[in-house]
Computed example of a mutant assay.
Amino acid sequence: MPFQWTGNARNRAEQDISASELTVLIVDDDRFFREMAAALLDGQGLVVVGDAADGAAGIEQACRLRPDVVLLDIQLPDLSGFEVCRILVDAGLQVVLCSAREASAYGPLVARSGARGFISKTVLSPQELTRIIES
């Protein structure tokens, strides 16, 4: 069972979320990163609505929650983040890939993934994620 962050995560159907707030789903196999990213992103115009620890759970959560953006780790234990990205983009969802590595480590795969962009885990911030989504 994937880790379920229980902080301030909200679901649009259950809470009154402003139309100006972007909802985010975090998909990453590192529980500490999911918790840290959720704490960092929740607020300042972003609402973390859930998380998942692997690609299959990420796909299920994304299709169920329909967040505005999925923050998706490239290195997952069951599926490649690039595989998950293609599935989510084909389902009409926006994806921002993330990794502890720099985008250049993946060569042309990031550019061909269909993702809105890439963000290194070392520079993750609400402002940077919002900038990528709005560009």
Rank of each mutant, 00 (worst) to 15 (best):
I59H: 01
E60N: 12
E60R: 15
E60T: 15
E60D: 14
E60Y: 01
E60C: 08
E60S: 14
Q61T: 05
Q61C: 10
A62C: 11
A62Y: 00
A62H: 04
C63D: 04
C63W: 00
C63F: 01
R64H: 06
L65C: 07
L65V: 10
R66I: 04
R66F: 00
P67A: 03
P67Q: 04
P67H: 02
D68L: 11
D68F: 06
V69Q: 05
V69G: 07
V70Y: 01
V70Q: 06
V70N: 04
L71N: 05
L71M: 11
L71A: 06
L72R: 06
L72V: 09
L72E: 02
L72D: 02
L72H: 03
D73A: 14
D73I: 12
D73F: 04
D73L: 12
D73H: 11
I74D: 03
I74T: 07
I74V: 15
Q75K: 15
Q75H: 10
Q75L: 13
Q75N: 14
L76W: 01
L76Y: 04
L76E: 01
P77V: 06
P77F: 00
P77L: 10
D78M: 12
D78A: 09
D78G: 14
L79K: 14
L79I: 07
L79G: 02
L79F: 06
S80W: 02
S80E: 09
S80R: 08
S80G: 11
S80C: 09
G81W: 02
G81F: 01
G81K: 08
C85E: 04
C85H: 05
C85K: 09
C85W: 00
R86M: 05
R86W: 00
I87T: 14
I87M: 12
I87Q: 15
L88D: 02
L88K: 09
L88C: 07
V89E: 05
V89A: 06
D90S: 14
D90L: 09
D90K: 14
A91N: 14
A91K: 15
A91G: 08
A91S: 15
A91F: 01
G92L: 11
L93E: 04
L93G: 02
L93T: 03
Q94K: 15
Q94Y: 02
Q94V: 09
Q94I: 04
V95C: 06
V95K: 08
V95W: 01
V96N: 05
V96A: 03
V96D: 01
V96Q: 05
V96P: 12
V96M: 07
